[in-house]
């Protein structure tokens, strides 16, 4: 079973109290909501149906609700959701329910702006009911405030669930990108190749270092060729990162060969004042490969012609 969202988002009793206080929902507001329940039970069917009428009249949301079976199911859920507002009780189970609603909308790809827009429609419908009830003055104002607060409290929870859902998606994408971003390829016994393409920021530079180190350690490699021909910009910061990777690999006992060095990169490295004696570099990847093989005691030779 999935862990509860209140657990995942670490929403506990303390958080609940803080949040309720922030939205100024206290005993009085909850009592008022509970007192409205009979009226709202009577009105639910109509309010939910007017609510969907609104959603179906708007081009944005209409296209989303093109399946009548789906609309029926959603209406049933909506009824339960709506009546829960007037329970007069907000506990962790309530919060969990609201998180789940938010997460379900996020998964369906419903953007938060529809959520907020639809909420406003809801609020309008409830307001009409309360005004039509015939109670006026301070009582009406206090009842309206209680409804607005609980609904905004709900919307905040839904947004929390949205943000958490987005962050989880982002994390999955990052993980996928990480694997693509620094592929360590075994090109020969104890020789690895790490071709870098694109932009290197400090986050990615860290990944490159870690992938290189793990690759060398797992493969017991002696040499790693770091090909930077595909790196868009090599400024002093990127060069510094690459040299740190070289230094870290040396600590493991492996040599690094830098290949694909353009004139601009050569200039940057010299300007950094790097001790070139410790650095193996080649202009072309093929030359780097030859050097790597010679470091592990192998060489590439021409096949004897004509035999």
């Amino acid at each position: 079973m999935d862990p509860s969202l209140t657990e995942v988002l670490q929403f506990d009793e303390h958080q609940l109290r803080t949040r309720l206080a922030f939205f100024r929902i206290g005993e009085e507001e909850l009592d008022r909501l509970a007192a409205m329940r009979p009226l709202m039970e009577e009105a639910t069917a109509q309010i939910v149906s007017l609510f969907y009428e609104h959603l179906l009249s708007q081009p944005e949301t209409r296209d989303f609700l093109d399946d009548p079976v789906l609309v029926d199911r959603l209406q049933a859920k909506q009824t339960a959701y709506f009546l829960q507002l007037f329970e007069g009780r907000v506990d962790l189970a309530y919060v969990e329910n609201r998180f789940r609603v938010g997460a379900a909308h996020e998964r369906l790809g419903v953007p938060p702006r529809w959520y907020i827009g639809a909420f406003d429609r809801y609020l309008g419908l409830v307001r009409e009911r309360l005004i039509g009830r015939g109670v006026a003055g301070a009582e009406l104002v206090a009842d309206l405030a209680a409804v607005e607060r609980i609904m905004h409290f709900d919307a905040a929870l839904a947004i929390d669930a949205y943000v958490a859902g987005h962050l989880a998606t982002h994390a999955r994408n990052q993980a996928a990108l990480r694997e693509l971003a620094s592929p360590v390829i075994r090109v020969h016994d104890r020789v690895l190749l790490l071709p870098l393409v694109g932009t290197i920021d400090s986050f990615r530079a860290q990944q490159v270092m870690e992938s290189a180190l793990l690759g060398v350690s797992e493969e017991q490699a002696r040499v790693l060729i770091l090909d930077i021909a595909g790196v868009a910009v090599v400024d002093t910061q990127v060069a510094d990162h690459l040299l740190k990777t070289t230094a870290a690999l040396r600590l493991l006992g492996a040599k690094t060969i830098l290949t694909g060095i353009s004139p601009q990169v050569a200039r940057t490295i010299v300007e950094l004042g790097v001790d070139l004696k410790t650095l193996h570099t080649r202009n072309k990847l093929s030359d780097g490969l030859e050097l790597a093989l010679s470091l592990v005691g192998r060489e590439i030779t021409d096949k004897e012609r004509g035999s």
Binding site: E210, L213, K244, A247, A248, L251, G253
Partner: peptide, 15 residues
């Protein structure tokens, strides 16, 4: 030397 040890030392500037 372990990979994580090498990375840590280099990050601290100790080569």
């Amino acid at each position: 030397m372990r990979p994580e040890v090498a990375a840590t030392l280099v990050q601290m500037g100790y080569m």
